[in-house]
Amino acid sequence: MELTWQAIAFFIFSALTLGGGFAVVTQRNIFHAALFLMLSLFGTAGLFVLLIAPFLAAVQVLVYIGAIAILVLFAIMLTRRLMGLTISLNQQWPAAALAMLVLFGVLLLVLTPVGDDILGQNWSANLPTDGDTAPEVTYITVREIGVAFSTQNGFVLPFEIVSLLLTSALIGAIVVAREDEAI
């Protein structure tokens, strides 16, 4: 395989994502774990750029790093004396490891030709391999996303449902957070 600049970038971002993720689960200091989570999310944003989905990349940074990570940090601070705890492996790790293995297996079957060999033809998504010529891909622009959001043939109903979901999340959060004050 030829080592293109794209490939190098892909390896760097994958390393950031995986390495960050690994550090999140192994770090004993929960604040450091949160910082590594941001690193991992940043790597994902880079992967989105490589997939020519810049809108998703910007959203990834804006929402996940700029908002959700901040929320995570606030949640950490909200919990008294979390710093003093040494967080060790809890009892759930075998279940998590099993789930990971299953997910990995499914991805392997669906995304690579291995699936075809084991489960018969046309099982895997026919992604191009090194031998094939790259297929024509049309990249989605922000305008097209917007058109899809607001036309009847597109996703206008999911679009509104998202809003409903966000509102209920907001109301739910307020109710939970102010529980003690007996609203």
């Binding site: 910082l35 810049p54 809108f55 940074v61 700029g66």
Partner: peptide, 25 residues
């Protein structure tokens, strides 16, 4: 001239928040 330039400005700007939390902590 990124196709998402204006959003890039907001996204990158939100990174300063992280720096401040790191300093405070």
């Amino acid at each position: 001239d990124l196709s998402i330039g204006a959003l890039y400005f907001v996204s990158v700007g939100s990174l300063t928040t992280i720096a401040i939390v790191m300093a405070g902590w």
